[in-house]
């Protein structure tokens, strides 16, 4: 009964191997009959400015989302943990999670609007007598603007797994600390967070895996594929493929797959051990 699922997972694996094969050829619009080309595609890739931009942008966005998502996730989960009403807690958690159900295409359309000059978020800032932000004006600010949308979309995910880990800690330990006169903040930082390693591992792997594949939001914000301020590692694959540089597209895909695989393997083995422990 495992066969259908394994078949499709096998197709994915087969396509990855196929990518590896293509990446060692010189297949492109200029060489419609691919020949073995060794590592030359990879060398060309590392000299390609747009590839370097894409991988740098993806790295920046992933790092920002990972750090901010973790910090906010822990703080929000801590706040929700101390709420007295269960209903309020689950309503608030749902509000933090609803962006997971909004497509990145819709988020991209809304983001274009939020980042409009003068009448977007800038208007709120001017009401508070704060300077306007050059949202999509520089390379770095573009990455931060994309990250902000991803943080909105993914922080709920972090919050969920931290909150789950927090609620898993036996109540009597926390009660004991409270009787000893420890404040909630002290309990959070001295007892709850240090005992939430599993939440940390799950939340950060998922934040990484979801943010590293960022594609749609920068594509929408950049108005297409030709805006190199807003290109990412996954967008490079599409660009190269569209220009019929198939070997380059595959080589980039292989690099991305290798990075993702490293995270997935450690995540999956950890998760499996966690389940079998019950």
């Amino acid at each position: 009964m495992l066969i259908p699922a394994l078949f499709f997972a096998g197709v994915a694996l087969y396509m990855v191997l196929w990518n590896i094969y293509i990446s060692f050829t010189n297949w492109s619009i200029f060489n419609p009959k691919p020949k073995f080309a060794g590592l030359s595609t990879y060398t060309a890739l590392f000299h390609d400015m747009i590839f370097k931009l894409g991988i740098t942008h993806s790295a920046i966005i992933t790092a920002v989302v990972l750090v901010v998502g973790t910090v906010l996730g822990i703080l929000f989960a801590g706040g929700l943990y101390f709420l007295k009403s269960n209903v309020q807690r689950s309503v608030y958690l749902s509000i933090l999670l609803y962006p997971m159900t909004i497509s990145s295409a819709s988020a991209g359309l809304i983001a274009e609007f939020l980042y409009m000059r003068q009448i977007g978020i800038d208007w709120l800032l001017s009401m508070l007598h704060l300077p306007a932000i050059n949202w999509l004006g520089t390379s770095l600010s573009s990455q931060l603007s994309v990250s902000l949308i991803e943080i909105w979309a993914l922080t709920g995910l972090g919050t969920l797994f931290y909150l789950a880990a927090f609620l898993n800690i036996p109540k009597d330990i926390i009660e004991a600390a409270r009787i000893d006169g420890a404040s909630s903040i002290k309990i959070l930082f001295k007892i709850i967070i240090p005992n939430s390693l599993s939440g940390f591992i799950i939340a950060s792997s998922l934040l990484f895996l979801f943010s590293f594949k960022v594609f749609t939001v920068p594509y929408f914000l950049g108005g297409g594929f030709t805006n190199y301020y807003l290109t990412t590692a996954t967008m490079y694959i599409y660009n190269a493929w569209f220009g019929e540089h198939f070997a380059e597209a595959s080589a980039d895909a292989v690099i991305i797959t290798a990075i993702v695989t490293a995270v997935v393997v450690s995540y999956a083995t950890y998760l499996l051990r966690k389940i079998s422990r019950g």
């Binding site: 994915a12 694996l13 590293f212 599409y238 597209a249 980039d252 895909a253 695989t261």
Partner: peptide, 20 residues
Amino acid sequence: VFTLISFAMFIPVQSLLVPL
């Protein structure tokens, strides 16, 4: 088995573009 199905689930869609 578990690693393989997690792998297929989390691999960025774009990275299978050429073979797909």
